[in-house]
Design a protein around this nucleic acid. Sequence first.
DNA 1: TAGTTCGAAATTTTT
DNA 2: TTTCGAACTA
Length: 763
Amino acid sequence: MSDILNQLNEAQQQAVTCSDGPVMVIAGAGSGKTRVLTYRIAYMLSRGVDPFNVLALTFTNKAAREMKERIISLVGSNDARNVWMGTFHSIFARILRVEGHFLGYPQNFTIYDTDDSKSVLKTIIKEQQLDPKVYTPGNVLSRISAAKSNLISAEDYNANSEIMDNDRVAGRPMIGEIFRHYRARCFKASAMDFDDLLFNTNVLLRDFPEVLFKYQQKFRYILVDEYQDTNHAQYLIVKKLAARHENICVVGDDAQSIYSFRGANIQNILNFRNDYPDVKTFKLEQNYRSTKVIVNAANSIIAKNKDQIFKQVWTENDEGNLIQVLKATTDVEEGILVANSVFQTKMNQQLPNSDFAILYRTNAQSRTIEEAFRKLNIPYRIYGGLSFYKRKEIKDLLAYFRLVVNTNDDEAFNRIINYPARGIGNTTLEKLELAAGENDKSLYEIARDVTGYVPGLAKNTATKIEEFATMIASFHIQLKKLSAYELGRKIATHSGLFKELAADQTEEGLSRLQNSEELLNALKDFSEKEETLFPGEEDEVVIENDETRSLDLFLQEISLMTDADSDDEDGNNKVTLMTIHAAKGLEFPYVYIVGVEENLFPSIMSLQSRADIEEERRLFYVAVTRAEKRVTLSYAESRYRWGNLTMNEPSRFLEEIDDSFIEQTTRRVQVKPSSGMPVMQKAPVFIKKNMKKLEDAGTGDAPSYETPVEMIQQGVEVEHERFGKGKVLSVEGAGPNIKATVFFAAVGQKQLLLKFAKLRIVG
DNA sequence: TAGTTCGAAATTTTT
DNA sequence: TTTCGAACTA
Ligand SMILES: Nc1ncnc2c1ncn2[C@@H]1O[C@H](COP(=O)(O)OP(=O)(O)OP(=O)(O)O)[C@@H](O)[C@H]1O
């Protein structure tokens, strides 16, 4: 046990050993807050606390997993497996699976992701005959989401005159009505969206005292990491659960609150004392992560914010490198400069790729960076953006799985009823929807007896629909009998999905098929492995048939997984590319913050209000404090945005850093990259290509094609990145509109505008 | 009903 | 640059 305490400084030790009652740790970046939380749990366990009585809420599932590993090695016992540890969403989804019946949800409810939610909203907006330009799904969803995060139900929303007035003034008076429909539809589909998981947990704990009591007894010790980014719904859950024993420990840093856009409220941490007057507060001041330069620069950045708690942060670490600033002419060049710098640093000092992280404000920025790394053959991994589970082909297959698991899932039904094509079009679907609404049934139930519910249908169509429904029913029966993998493969083949994919011989089609196979592989792994993230207990029989790792369990596991949660199978020695938001809580020796430009970072959306700019500044603070050894900032004077060239000034944040922390020579150095850099041959090509685009954008006329275009003539063999190989049958048109008719082996004859089509001449 | 084509719109950040 | 939906054709 003293081993555990030996690895902590005095303030940390106090925070760890101060046993019962409310505890708050509020401290700057890299001061060991997460470490305190981890060691605190280890300490408790070593003092005989039952791991089943500990609930630890982390920001990602991966953080939870790592914390668990750490604790296991600290206490030298596998017992720590049984600690309840995970994100708010995954922990309470788990609990809702068991207790949801109190609220009328089945155990196998579906979790809707943002796309599902938007799709439901789109249907409602159309149904209500509202102007889709005024009511965009994204907009409406964010209103609804904000409401639910603040525990405002659809009824409350409509009854609240202030909210309704706001909507009216904003020209969107019908949002309350849409909200009502949305909530009804989700419920009917046995589905919860992300916000519902927290909202419904609150309802559960509010309206069912016996449930509240049960979990208060279970979770005698509650710990929350990154508490500054909790929203009201999360705050109340914690408050309710902790009310009985008040063994609650929260750690956080108000200067790192960066999720207010999804309802996070710094007041939760600032007002903690109001709820627990006898809270013991600990401040940690020593930073163990970063060099003096980084710590001091970060301090000077955050000092510009008005709203903050003053914190002294210092370090005994080395002075370290000054902050480098790279200036590029274009976004493409920025990528090259960054990749070069990584390459040089890594070669000079013999460092692994995993020592480097590239952080950006928006996902869209990853592209140019990615291309530069690919050119240099530096392995990288992109987090966020389009994850595996968001790909079309994967979502299609998953929609089949979802419908089989929860036949009420109308979203899934909609997605796959006519994919692969079964001759069931929009008109038919509308009739089904109508019948479903009138009879208060799910689309699936209508489909099972379509002749009964929708009499006027063409015979052929009705048969098709019933065949589909029967197929789903036959899968559904086998849900608990087969493993996830066995059933998954059966569905993929029997539904005709694989056949459809295999028929597409284009390169894109092949990769789609491969991805789908990859999903089946994941199912296979899942079916074979034993453990899940969560412990089970005798008093909660969630899993009826423990033997089969069935498909519904698989869906539960992946629905709340982000790609930060999964590890890469082909090695982890890669440069990390991610948004700053995703980097919260992580650390890397060398950090590059790219796109440090006005209108991008700070985002153009934030310039209106001081509060928003301060949040951007906190984001910048988070970014800088991820670094252990060196920070490099970069900006580009111009960058492409939706295909348009835009000019940008360097970010105000650059100027806010004291000059004494910035390496003054870097500017000169990278205007003329030193020779010996590996991309010297390639860089000019890139820049030239970009210059050409510049010209085009400037003049508009004077078509300037790259040479190959003239070479595309009748009879030439070409390759298209999507359609594969083909032969040019004819070329017509002139100027910017030259068109070629090409016959592709894979997809047949196509007309292509040479301006856009990327044709390569073969042979 | 299915497949194609053309024009408009989109990008903050995420569970 | 890509994605989505409306309009059009087979
Ligand atoms: N007493 C200590 N001795 C040695 N290393 C420490 C000590 N405390 C913390 N560290 C190290 O400092 C780094 C930062 O710790 P940790 O991630 O817990 O900080 P944090 O306050 O949670 O940071 P952030 O708020 O930025 O996420 C980690 O690498 C951790 O191992």
